[in-house]
Amino acid sequence: MKKGQASGAAVLLAIIAGLIIMFIILIPPSEREELLGTGDSPDDSGDGAVSAKVLLRESPGRLDFLDKKEVEHPLPVINVYTKEESKVLAQKNLARVSKKIFSEQISDFPFFIEDLENVDNVLLSFKVDSGSEGNLIVLLNGAEIYNAPAAAGAARPINIPKNALQKNNLIVFTASSPGIAFWKSHQIIVEEIQIVADVTNVQAQQSRNIFLITETEKSNLERIALQFQPNCRAGEVGRLSIQINGQEVYNTVPDCDLQMVPIEFSPSGAHQGENELIFASEKGIYQLSRVMVKSLLREVDYPTYYFDLSLEQYKAVTEGSLQVRLRLDFVDITAQKRGEILFNGHARPFDTDEVSETFDLSADIVQGTNAVKIKPRRTLEIRELKVDLKD
């Protein structure tokens, strides 16, 4: 080999060696120790024996217990209705009015309507005493609604337009002028004055009901529905509206002959804790029976945790020099904790009020991958799950 070729090969070897050294320096320490064979084995002591170690550490947190797929919330029979009845809104025994050319006597009749929206067919009725002369004039809130001769006996009831009414109203009775007969006086006596109307009673138009949803039910809610059986008379009822927590989920006239009306609504509309149901009738009488809110819960898939045992560790446990122990640390320090540990297909139940529980898993271990699952028998909160290889 020529001198120039030899020097070039030396340079190339130096560059390769430098890159290898730089690679070894830059890789993580654990991989560098494994590559160079300088690290201590995690499973072996200096004399080749298997040492104790933590095999698994997890924080499972909250594990909900569901003993059924459906939760039913029955409600009592619900009656919602509006009732229309004829009522006397105001009355006055006597009104005496008169008018001369230079003087006048009038009679005021104030009345109040508390719920104007639910009042219809308002009538003014009265009787005129015999001996009355002239025209009787009636004003409502300043507008003339009647002007006719004061004939003795019961006058035909005056239909008062609803748009002429207010909450506070004033009827004024007065007599017509005698005109050019200045020496005369028109005198009229009005008796048995009444304001009568059809009033819709809306006190039972709405019904408010409460049902409760637990934290576990809300966390695992997949579907939720309301159902009821309507009892009503077709043609005599208006719309039935239903609100859940302020959100309208139904507003129509149901079929009065249906055995059951199902209404499914979004699970997001249901709240943990109190939930408010409001039924309201626009018109007529509804009796709602077999009312129920039904929750369909998703199946809970509890997590499975895995850890590995080497051949040396497996032999150490089966020969009795080491043990595999599982420890559960709970959040609640007083409540009863019930459930079972499923380890490699073997169940170990627990029922304790302690803050922690320990299990010896040594009898059911396998070489290689081992599996642990916790199945609660009541809702649990687990701070830590730890599996140790112990002396």
Score class of each variant (00 low, 15 high):
Q166A: 15
N93C: 04
E133Y: 06
L94H: 07
F112I: 10
I106E: 07
E114G: 02
N141V: 12
L75H: 07
V196T: 13
I171T: 06
Y81S: 14
I188Q: 01
W183V: 07
L140V: 07
E144S: 09
P178N: 14
A181W: 10
G134N: 02
F182E: 14
P157W: 10
L124R: 01
S98Y: 15
Q187I: 08
V128H: 02
V190A: 00
L124Y: 02
P149M: 04
N79E: 15
G153R: 08
S98F: 15
S177N: 13
V138L: 09
N141I: 14
Q91W: 01
E133T: 15
V77T: 15
L94S: 11
A152Y: 01
V119D: 03
N163M: 08
A151T: 11
S86G: 10
N163A: 11
G131I: 13
I195C: 05
P178K: 14
S132W: 00
S86Y: 13
V122E: 04
D120I: 13
V97E: 00
L124I: 06
I106N: 09
V122S: 06
P110C: 09
S98A: 15
G131T: 12
E85S: 13
W183P: 00
N169K: 05
E133Q: 14
I78Q: 08
L139P: 02
F112N: 11
S177G: 03
I188S: 03
P149E: 07
I158G: 06
V122T: 15
Y146P: 10
Q194A: 13
F109P: 01
V172S: 06
